[in-house]
Amino acid sequence: MERSNRMRDIRSLTADEIAELVQELGQPAFRAKQICEWVFTKHVSSFEEMTNIPKKLREQLSEHFSFRLPEELVKQVSRDGSRKYLLEFSDGTSVETVGMPSKNKLAVCVSTQAGCGMGCAFCATGFNGLTRSLSAQEIVDQVRHVAMDFDERVTSVVFMGQGEPFANFDATVKALRMLNDPDGYAIGARHLTVSTCGVIPGIKRFSELPEQFTLAISLHSAVQSTRNKLMPGVKKYTLPRLHEAIQAYVEKTGRRPTYEFAMIDGINDTNPEMEALIDFCRGTLCHVNLIQLNDTPGSLLKPSPMKKVETLQKRLQMHGVEATIRNSRGNDIDAACGQLKQRLIQS
């Protein structure tokens, strides 16, 4: 195990690098295409599975490369069919990932960092701070793990797990492209959603991407003082600047961003808070996802009554703002938004 951890993951090589490797080993060029197909299309987890590759070549590959796949430490299954996994990478770092089946679809919520440095008051992930950012392969490996466990094709991925994706921008974009690759997971760009706390430089860079990936913003309050308390990590990205950046994103891409709004009893569900949200959204291209705050152990914040959530939805719609009440998935296994945490739970 220790030796394989020191070896490079074969999946970190590009197709050109695999072609060079095959040439160095004195093998015909078509072997590179075969290896690429096993690694990037069929997503095998060992060289032994490459049945049309000569045994000698497989042995040569295994001497220098490995498959550094995460190990599943814990799996929990929700009443609604969602599954939460605690996955450990080769260096001992762990993250949580959630698979959410629905009819003939399978969505995955992935983490982009182990822990988080944003310190949002309602989110369990940030309670212990940031451990490290994940590589693109480690992000994609979460999707692979869920697909293998469900034995189904993943149809959408949301980057809404642990961490701030735009604090790990390059790896996030590389993972998006790996998942979108028609020769890989072939998930449509519009079915790949990145959620940010409102990191403005990241929003600007995201708008420059040629792919039609989807953007979601964790807003949670359109009142600056309230948002500062709830989301201290993005205090410097003020609401007027955020609004401007999002409008620039819309003008550049023509795509509709989503605002995530977790309703918290007595905090952001008052009449002034509702009015501020309506003003923030009115006359702009956007969609608001309303959700009752998910209870987080150790937090004093509580969810708003459903009646208030429904009231806000109606008021937004009256002003021409699209709004949906989102049902929470996996709440009974602490797999819902804001509940993911690096901890070992006995199943």
Rank of each mutant, 00 (worst) to 15 (best):
R3T: 12
M7K: 13
S12K: 10
D16C: 02
A19K: 13
E24N: 12
Q27C: 14
E37T: 14
V39P: 09
T41G: 09
E48I: 11
E48K: 13
I53L: 07
K55S: 14
F65L: 06
L69T: 07
E71M: 11
V74C: 00
V77E: 15
V77D: 11
G81L: 04
G81S: 06
K84P: 04
L86M: 11
L86V: 01
S94F: 02
V95G: 00
T97F: 00
T97V: 10
V98R: 03
A107P: 10
V108W: 02
T112C: 08
G115K: 01
G115H: 03
C120Y: 10
G126K: 04
N128P: 02
G129E: 04
L130A: 04
T131F: 03
R132I: 00
I139F: 03
Q142Y: 01
V143P: 03
F150R: 11
E152I: 08
T155S: 14
T155N: 12
V158K: 05
G161I: 03
G161C: 07
Q162M: 15
Q162E: 15
A167N: 11
V173F: 05
A175S: 12
R177M: 01
L179H: 01
D181C: 14
G188H: 09
H191G: 01
V194A: 01
V194Y: 08
S195E: 07
G198L: 02
G202T: 11
I203M: 00
K204P: 03
E208L: 10
E211S: 11
Q212N: 13
L215W: 02
I217N: 06
S221D: 12
S221E: 10
T226F: 02
R227H: 07
R227W: 00
P232R: 09
L239G: 01
A245S: 06
E260W: 01
E260V: 08
F261D: 00
I264W: 07
D265Q: 06
G266F: 08
G266L: 07
G266Q: 05
G266V: 06
P272D: 04
L277E: 04
C281Q: 08
L285F: 09
C286P: 05
V288M: 04
Q292P: 15
Q292D: 03
L293E: 02
P297E: 08
P297M: 08
L300Q: 11
L301Y: 15
K302E: 14
K302R: 15
K307P: 04
V309K: 13
E310F: 01
L312P: 03
Q313E: 07
K314E: 14
Q317F: 02
Q317G: 10
M318P: 04
A335P: 06
Q339I: 00
Q339L: 04
K341A: 09
Q342C: 14
Q346R: 15
Q346D: 10
